[in-house]
Amino acid sequence: MPLLHFLSLPCKPDRPYVTLRSCRYHLPTVRPCCSCDMPNSIVIAERLNRVTDTHREATSTPAGATMPRGTGVRRILTIARNAFREAVRDRVLYNLVLFVLLLTASAIFLGELSAAQEAKIIVDLGLSAMLLFGTFIAIFVGTGLVYKEIERRTLYAILAKPVGRGEFLLGKYLGLCLTLAVNVSVMGVGISLALLFVKRGYDPLALRIWPAVALIYIELMIVVAVALLFSSFSTPALAALLTFAVFVIGHFSADLKTLAAATGTTAARIFFGLLFYLLPNLSHYTKLTDAGHGLMPAPSAFIVALAYALIYIAVLLAAATFIFNRRNFK
C-alpha cells in the first residue's frame, strides 16, 4: 500500500479497489484492498467486478426458487438413483443380452422334446440363470459399491455434504437393489415370453413362475446386504469370497442344523448351531423345481420369507453402518 502513495497515484474513493503488488519471484498481481485506483489496474479491476457479479447471479437463490429442504429420505433416494445410473453406465445390465441368448437357444434346441418337458426346462434354466447372474451382480458389484468410492475418493466430496454415512450406505444399497429389480424383472418377462412362445399360446406357467421370481429377488437383496457388510471392512476380493461362502452355506443351512444335532461334542454342536442361526437360510428362496411344476409357495410361507429377509437385511445394514461410521478414510 505505501508504495502506491510513493508513486503519487490517483486515489478515488468511489472507484473499484485494486492495488498492484509485485516482488522478485512473481509477476505483478492483483488484490482488492483499499479505495485506490490506478490507470494500469482498471482492466483488472473490471475483470474482478465482472467475476463477482457473475458469481452473485450464479449462486444466489433464483427468484421464486424454494430454499433447500434436505430430508434424509430424499438424500437416500438421490444416492440410490445415482448408484442405479452408475450400474447402467458401467454396463451391468448387459448380462441380460447373454440371458436372452441363452433362453432363445434353449427354446430352439429343446424343440425336439415334448411341450411339457420343454416348459419345465425353460423355467429351470431361466430361473437358475436368473439366480446365478443376479448373485454374480450382487457379489461383484455389491462388494465394490463402497470400496470403489473410497479407493477412487469419490465419496470425499459427497460425505462433506450434509449426507450421513448411514444414508450413503443405504442409498448405495437401494441403488443396487433397483438395478437387480430391473434385471430380475426383465429376465422374468423373458422367461414368460419364452413359455408363451414354446406353447404357441397362453401357458399358466408364465404367470405362476412370478412368486418364485420374487423370492429369488428377495434372496439377492440379502446377498447384496451381506456383500455390503463385508465390503465395509475388507477388500473387494475378500468380501466377494466371504459373501460367496455365505451364499453357498446359506443354501445348505438345513444341513447345518442336522450336523449340529448329529455332532458328538458340545463345542461342535454349539458352533454349528450358532452358524445355523447366524447365517441366512437361503433355501427358502430357491423354489426352482416347484416353479417348474407350476407350484406356487403358500402365501404364509411367502410372507414369512419376506419378513425374515427384511429383518435380516435391517440387521446387516445396521452392522455395516456401525462399522462404516467408525472408518477413517485416509
Binding site: I79, N82, R153, T154, Y156, I158, P162
Partner: peptide
C-alpha cells in the same frame, strides 16, 4: 463447501449431471 485434494468424481456422469446430483443432495428442487 469442500473441494478435495486431487478431485475425483463419478467419471460416468457428465459435468452437468454431477453438479445437479450435488445440488440435489442439498435438497434443492
Amino acid at each position: 463447501g469442500y473441494l478435495p485434494e486431487h478431485p475425483y468424481f463419478y467419471d460416468y456422469l457428465t459435468a452437468r449431471e454431477f453438479l445437479e446430483y450435488c445440488a440435489e443432495l442439498f435438497g434443492y428442487t
